[in-house]
Design a protein around this nucleic acid. Structure first.
Length: 258
DNA sequence: ATGGCAGGTTGAACCTGA
């Protein structure tokens, strides 16, 4: 079972790139962020022709999340967060897997820059609302996979130049503390669990040749319930799509469940 | 210190992203 998280930076601009990825790597489930379109204009047919069902929480122009899956998903929820700006940033679904019911939660956390503005406050409040919800959900279900674009650099080795991020919304201490708070609810950072300190960038800026120079950031994550951890066989950052024509600035991160 | 790339909306210029 392969579950992917991928900030696609517009599902419509990226549809050929995404289809190529689906055909080449056949993930079972893909949690997408920044689809940048409304439900009505989501490319359902492109994915259904490849045997994926789509569940979409769209928004015009900005944000938007979706889960596409080769397996039937149940209990789709769009209401887990109290979002004061009513942006489409979270979608959840239940996946039946080996007699377990795994709750998949797909998030697109606000970026939060610049830090002296309302955008930063919004990020903090959004994360607080997520933490509150996780607290309650993890009491009811011990099998949760929380994935997506967290817009958080968990630690110094997660950026090519951490000095440049010390007062950035991706790395401010109070933001890292919120990430830590989530983990302390009973989760593991799946990438670090498998790979230790190894570099694991998932994002490279379009500008200044960041991809060619490997000036990357690790801001896309899988947090897996402790009780599911023994099922995590591997975590792969799949750099293939980032090197193609017209790529997203993020590349897929994949988790393999045994 | 600034802008650089990319996408979306809208109709050339502006917003957002990380």
């Amino acid at each position: 079972m392969i579950i992917t998280s991928w900030n696609v930076n517009s599902v419509r601009a990226r549809v050929e790139n995404i289809k190529e990825y689906l055909q080449k790597f056949s993930p079972d489930v893909v949690m997408m962020q920044e689809i940048k379109t409304q439900d009505e204009t989501f490319p359902y047919d492109d994915f259904s022709r490849l045997d994926y069902e789509s569940h979409v929480f769209g928004q015009k122009s900005y944000n938007g999340v979706a889960i596409i899956s080769k397996h039937k998903l149940e209990n789709i929820r769009l209401d887990l967060i109290k979002d004061k700006l009513k942006q489409s940033r979270i979608i959840s679904a239940e996946l039946k897997y080996k007699k377990k019911s795994i709750q998949l939660i797909n998030i697109y956390t606000p970026n939060g820059n610049p830090v002296d503005t309302e955008k930063y406050t919004y990020k903090k409040e959004w994360l607080d609302s997520l933490i509150k919800q996780l607290k309650s959900l993890s009491k009811k279900n011990e099998n949760i996979i929380l994935a997506g674009d967290f817009n958080i650099l968990p630690s110094a080795e997660d950026a090519y130049n951490i000095k440049g991020f010390e007062d950035d919304a991706l790395y401010r201490l109070e933001i890292r503390k919120k990430y830590r708070e989530m983990i302390n609810l009973g989760f593991h950072d799946a990438y670090r669990h498998i790979h230790g300190e190894k570099e694991g960038y998932t994002y490279w800026d379009y500008m200044r040749g960041a991809w060619q120079k490997n000036n990357g950031l690790r801001i896309d994550h899988f947090l897996v319930s402790n009780s599911l951890l023994n099922k995590v066989k591997n975590v792969i950052i799949n750099k293939d799509p980032r090197g193609k024509e017209k790529p997203s600035d993020h590349t897929p991160i994949e988790i393999e469940l045994a």
